[in-house]
Design a protein around this nucleic acid. Structure first.
Lengths: 144, 144
DNA sequence: AAAATAAAAGATAAAAAACTCTTTATTTAT
DNA sequence: ATAAATAAAGAGTTTTTTATCTTTTATTTT
């Protein structure tokens, strides 16, 4: 469904949202541990998320990653687009380049509905929403 | 969503269902052309589908691939399982090994519904269904 | 029996994705 | 100023996926 990078990105975003703030930044090592992700790999991903302004970062002692109010409004969809591109929005399930309403692949109609629900799901849920949910102990993040 | 192999497999199965029968088998070359797939690659995939009895094959002159009545009842889900495994049924969207009802990831509940619909879609549609649809000119298969 | 045909199998190669390591730049505290 | 902390950047490796090429085996036709 999503690439590994994307999975890590979502988890990292949720983790940072929970564990840090402007005056308590959090380092790559912590994020890697907290999400059971390979450190250097997730560093790359965080870097990219930073470049795209989905997350804030500062270097140096007491530096690290954190989120501002705007970042908390980031949707899962924003993260998916930042890491995996527009594929989920535009690609045909069968990989047909020419698949469209006018030239539908055999599963086009059936998949359309699924796709819409999928998109709605990732659009409507913001990182901030998950922060709240997790604060209530409703779901868990770690892997092992 | 699905691997390339899986996409090719689905397309090949539909193509063979349409273009062949027990007394008009169809060769790898034709299938590759008809689905715009790399010949040797799709040969491998067909081989695997054959081993798993989702498709019939015979060697020698006038040999090739075809489907029997039972094969026409193959669902998209069967093909997905044969090529990509059980992942779509069992994997967490965030890649969490321990994600479950009792230990849900942040998007577990939301994704559950989507997943069910997705599974229902691939389970309920058989290759034979698509054959009919395509015969009615309702959808298209080729890529270019 | 020989030749032709076509899939099966095996080996190899190329490309992409996932992951690691090393160095550099920036910031802060001393 | 210097040293330490930390992200950024770049280069490199490994693994997985996708694709290709070659040889073998089975079947059919002549």
């Amino acid at each position: 469904m999503f690439s590994k990078s994307c999975e890590y990105a979502i988890k990292a975003m949720i983790y940072v949202a929970r564990e840090s703030s402007e005056d308590h930044k959090i380092g790559v090592k912590d994020i890697a541990k907290g999400t059971n992700a390979p450190e250097h790999f997730i560093a790359k991903i965080l870097q990219e998320l930073g470049r795209k302004r989905l997350i804030q970062s500062t270097k140096g002692p007491n530096g690290g990653f954190y989120m501002d109010e705007k970042n908390l409004k980031t949707s899962i969809a924003d993260i998916v687009r930042a890491t995996d591109g527009e594929g989920i929005y535009v690609d045909c399930v069968l990989g047909l380049k020419t698949c469209s309403e006018k030239n539908p692949c055999p599963v086009h109609e059936e998949y359309k509905e699924i796709k819409q629900k999928l998109i709605r799901m990732i659009e409507k849920n913001s990182i901030g929403d998950f922060k709240k949910k997790l604060d209530l102990g409703l779901s868990f993040l770690k892997n092992k």
